[in-house]
Design a protein around this nucleic acid. Structure first.
Lengths: 344, 344
DNA sequence: GCGCACTACGTCAACGTTGACTCAGGAGGA
DNA sequence: TCCTCCTGAGTCAACGTTGACGTAGTGCGC
């Protein structure tokens, strides 16, 4: 074993060339399957590379190559341990692998300065492109990066600046659909519980909620709207407060995953989960195993990821494509909780 | 905007040097905070770098530097969209960020040839180290990589070869603890449902099951042992078959996440979830919201990830450290399903 | 006034690879 | 026979950066 020795120096093309008694350039040709090398020279080079355990140095290669490709893309999401983000990452990774590209991944934690830092880190490594879930607020850093010509695709949230590809979900339309379904069951007091309004998705879903009410001829009750619920604790408090109203809602539209779970928790602890309707945005595991099953709007996460990857690779291939804004449809999955009619 | 223009060439040190009227070396010194540059030269270089939007090329830098560090590590897990894997990735990423290191991530899908390919891909990019969840079976590719001197830490599964760091969970001990708890409640017919036996973790948990039985003076009933349940479908079939036995089990030890869920599903559909005890290995979201809550052995996933990252960075710093094998304790979380006594 | 140390730079080559070019030798045609 | 073309190589420099080393100028002690 390696005990005692430090990291062995990697053999270089020159080492292989010396052993095969050819020039380094010939080794380069063999490694890159370029023509102009005779069969027995090819064999000598291959044998030498094998015995030395030679592996090409991609960093040196991409430094010298004319296209400067690093065969690496950057992925900058909010939190890689979040199931949504990791499913997205996996979809991007799968598509990248087909092109022999590896993925540098980072979590921005919705922190602009961290995003800026990671962006610079990716840029220093000269990635071929970036797939970014932009943090809320100003996107100056992203815009600057894009304006330098770095291929970039925004996922889940659209760019606030021009000429940049994006992939999003039908947030507004699907939220609206959920609310309309509740209204058609006879609900007239439908509460909205959502995440931070600075997040584009949250805001879109709220707009969809408003549209759904309007479409169904319902009046907006401002006391039934709870926004900026960051995390399950705030969601639980908000749900409890709603239920304690003199005129409580008969249905909840919970516009984010953790909010959905927080609300569920409160409904269950009050044994009201069979009497109050609930539709959540974004599916989650075991939603079908609860009593009742939780009706949700399911986003096509792998679809989002695949599309994002397709776009980034298309953009890398051709910088001059017109920007593309893909919208991936979400689906309403009826499991019971969203099909509870109002009482009396 | 960038419309029409291809990717703008990145400014180099020479560009900055020309603008600041100094040599490239001086720019290098300023960028790396090295001494030997006067204050006003520093200012000129800084200003020039700002106006040009200069960002150092880390690939060129790591090519030339003596230590050859790329400030990048590789992470090779089974499936990055799996919550266990992604939580692990996140923990590694957090630790890496502290050292200014980025993470190249890949999913091996438990496929030896894919793992081999990704390993080569990482090696070509000259990562400083690798954190690997080894695929089952032969680990030759990993061993070869390790023998070349690449710093490597195996997570969740130990190496079958020497001189390599690893981090694992108390699979056997915790499985044993779970089974002993069931036995102490009076259960005598405790079934084992587990994933593929080729996986080290599955095998360990099975061994723990056997130890638990032995410790409690129970005899092994081979007809209650179901292994190699890959995926929830097989788990459901196996559970159904167990319950259809003339002498069915009164408690289930489900040794893997998807198996746990599959078994739960069958118990619920047969309305037996309040009569048959169940303890699962590995926690999952909403386990506490079901009726009854699911008792599980919870692994300390962030702890595993942190430790793995600590080890890889220690190894990168010092190749000569003796190999370290960390074992992170798991905890039994009692929620109800594992505290159901046998009937009559 | 001379040597010496010290500071603030600059010069050069090299990291591992590849694009552009050169070149020897043989085949083939006029 | 001579010229051209093609094949299978090799040579050289450069990608962007930094380690090793060189050097001009200043300050200071004796």
């Amino acid at each position: 074993m390696d005990s005692g020795a430090g990291r062995r120096p990697e053999p270089t093309m020159r080492d292989v060339a010396a052993l095969a008694r050819v020039s380094a350039k010939t080794v380069s040709r063999v490694i890159n399957d370029q023509p102009g090398v005779g069969p027995e020279a090819i064999e000598r080079v291959r044998a030498a590379a094998r015995t030395l355990g030679y592996r090409p140095n991609l960093t040196a290669s991409s430094l010298r190559r004319s296209d400067k490709r690093s065969a690496t893309i950057g992925v900058l999401f909010e939190d890689l341990s979040n199931p949504f983000d990791s499913a997205l990452l996996r979809a991007v990774e799968d598509r990248a692998r087909q092109s022999g590209v590896l993925v540098l991944a980072g979590s921005s934690e919705d922190d602009p300065s961290l995003q800026r830092e990671l962006l610079a880190s990716l840029a220093s490594r000269r990635v071929d492109g970036m797939v970014v879930m932009a943090v809320g607020g100003h996107q100056d850093a992203l815009q600057q990066e894009r304006e330098r010509g770095t291929p970039m695709v925004l996922v889940d949230r659209p760019p606030t600046f021009g000429e940049t590809d994006s992939v999003t979900t039908t947030n507004r339309e699907s939220a609206r659909e959920a609310v309309v379904q509740l209204a058609e069951l006879g609900h007239r007091d439908i509460a909205f519980l959502g995440d931070r309004q600075t997040l584009w998705t949250s805001h879109e879903r709220y707009t969809g909620y408003l549209e759904g009410l309007a479409h169904s001829g319902l009046k907006l009750r401002k006391d039934l709207v709870c926004t900026d619920l960051k995390g399950p604790d705030l969601a639980e408090q908000a749900t409890a407060a709603l239920l304690d109203l003199p005129d409580p809602p008969t249905a909840l539209f919970t516009a984010q995953n953790l909010v959905t779970v927080g609300a569920m928790r409160v409904l269950r602890s009050r044994r009201m989960h069979h009497r109050i309707a609930q539709i959540g945005f974004d599916d989650f595991p075991l939603a079908d195993m609860l009593e009742p099953g939780i009706t949700v709007v399911r986003q096509d996460v792998p679809g989002l990821g695949r599309k994002a990857a397709d776009l980034i690779f298309a953009r890398i291939e051709n910088h001059h494509l017109p920007p593309s804004h893909a919208v991936i449809p979400a689906t309403l999955i009826r499991r019971g909780s969203g099909e509870i009619p109002p009482e009396s």
